[in-house]
């Protein structure tokens, strides 16, 4: 899977053995719960008591933690400083010279950080434990359009190659002295020799890509079959229904807790 635009990490874990739709339902439940429960504690409860134990079960805890922190940390710093320092009319709790951190701002920042952490780590959990092709095939066996499967899977395989190509062109432009100084307009204009050939070349290539698809009967109408088979169990089917009910319940709980507060 090193060739695809995906963080999928193969492990012999119970989570990896789940049907992709079960995994998807689980992750959507985490996401819904994290955003539905009132802050600032709600998202953290989901993160600590649901997402982290699941990541541990999937044997991807270190991967999930390091990536989640790397993404969430800049947000956290930004939001604590900006909303903490510049909260309008808040109660000062810490004086920093002419500025002060406000309790309401910190409270808000803690809640935002929690939400970012939940969103980011939910997606990471799915990505680390679920093969993207298995997930898409599961979706199209449930009636999602074949064209969607094609778009998603082709994208995650093409994207890394484009990134490599873009980087090569960037390095070449840098070697020739790409404008990195000067006004914004100038620097954006200096990017044209980087962007235009990359895009133009790839658009011309799509003619052949389309031909290859048609030569493999891609646009033929009628029923299609699948080589890859996925293992599903009645327990997992029941589990997915329970998770769906759970999502409704947790949204209701969130509303009730907000009303009560």
């Amino acid at each position: 899977m090193t060739n695809a635009f995906s963080l999928y990490t193969p492990r012999a874990s119970a989570l990896h053995r789940l049907h992709p739709l079960t995994m998807l339902a689980l992750v959507v439940f985490c996401l819904v719960a994290g955003l539905a429960l009132p802050g600032p504690w709600g998202p953290y409860v989901v993160f600590l008591l649901l997402i982290l134990p699941l990541a541990a079960l999937g044997q991807v805890l270190p991967n999930l933690l390091s990536t989640a922190v790397k993404i969430a940390l800049p947000f956290a710093i930004s939001v604590f400083l900006i909303q903490g320092l510049f909260w309008t009319g808040g109660t000062p709790v810490v004086e920093l010279g002419p500025l002060s951190l406000k309790r309401e701002g910190l409270w808000f920042a803690a809640q935002s950080t929690g939400r970012v952490l939940t969103v980011v780590s939910s997606f990471l959990l799915l990505s680390l434990t679920t093969r993207p092709d298995a997930l898409m095939i599961a979706l199209d066996q449930r009636g999602a359009p074949k064209t969607l499967t094609y778009i998603v899977l082709a994208t995650i395989q093409i994207a890394p190659r484009f990134q490599a190509k873009a980087r090569t062109i960037l390095d070449a432009q840098r070697a020739r002295g790409l404008e990195t100084e000067g006004s914004v307009g100038r620097r954006v204009a200096a990017l044209l020799p980087l962007v235009v050939p990359l895009v133009l070349g790839s658009i011309i290539d799509i003619e052949e890509r389309a031909m290859a698809l048609d030569a493999r009967a891609f646009s033929r109408s009628g029923p299609k079959t699948s080589l890859l088979t996925l293992r599903d169990t009645s327990a997992q089917r029941a589990g997915r229904w329970l998770l769906l009910l759970g999502m409704i319940a947790v949204v209701a709980l969130g509303i009730w807790l907000r009303r009560a507060a």
Binding site: A154, A159, R161, F162, L198, R209
Partner: peptide
């Protein structure tokens, strides 16, 4: 099919240039 072949390439362009 031409439009369909274009979409993944376009998404890859978004991502590649966005990150550069």
């Amino acid at each position: 099919t031409l439009t369909l072949a274009l979409i993944p390439v376009a998404i890859a362009i978004n991502i590649a240039i966005g990150q550069i």
